[in-house]
């Protein structure tokens, strides 16, 4: 089993954190895992993405050219990455911000009102966790429980107050 995913959105949407939570959870479930972030000259604006590979075997290249799945939190990311998805792959879009057609009929497309749901929870910044929850439900590669624990570990003592809302968002995304 090897699962390759690209997570993408605006800088500031918590893209790197999503990837880190996913990678951390994969590690906790004793999988091989790589996380590779985009890193650019521009500090803000533009799109950010990270590539995560989870596998039961050793992983070669950490760079994902043809992903099994894409999580796109904004329109430019959906436009950029959708055509790269493998046949029968998965596209998760934040339909609060992504409205266009995917132009692909050979993939599974899941629309999640991530930003809207997050706003309903009281903080639109947790849209990332809503989308991640939805992804985990679709690919069933990791236990939801493990992701919740990873969230707690990664947010740590300093951001302990954010644990509950992030877990709630993750679970809401999973339930959809």
């Amino acid at each position: 089993m090897q699962e390759e995913v690209i997570i993408a959105g605006f800088g500031g949407q918590g893209i790197m954190f999503m990837g880190t939570v996913l990678a951390h959870a994969a590690m906790q479930e004793n999988k091989s895992v790589t996380f590779f972030p985009s890193y650019g000259a521009e500090m803000r604006g533009g799109t950010a993405n990270c590539m995560i590979i989870m596998s039961d075997e050793d992983i070669g290249s950490p760079v994902v050219a043809r992903p099994d799945g894409i999580i796109a939190l904004n329109q430019p990311s959906a436009d950029k990455f959708t055509r790269r998805i493998k046949e029968k792959g998965l596209l998760i879009v934040n339909s609060s911000l992504v409205t266009g057609e995917s132009g692909r009929d050979d993939i599974k497309k899941v629309e999640v009102q991530a930003t809207k749901i997050a706003e309903g929870l009281g903080d639109k910044r947790v849209a990332n966790m809503v989308a991640l929850g939805s992804y985990i439900k679709e690919v069933k590669i990791l236990k939801l429980e493990t992701l919740c624990k990873s969230l707690e570990t990664l947010l740590g003592e300093k951001k302990k107050n954010l644990v509950d809302i992030n877990i709630k968002a993750l679970k809401d995304g999973y339930k959809l």
Binding site: Y39, P62, V63
Partner: peptide, 10 residues
């Protein structure tokens, strides 16, 4: 290189 420097692994 930049890829190895930036990537995360256990």
């Amino acid at each position: 290189d930049g890829v190895l420097g930036q990537m995360m692994e256990p």
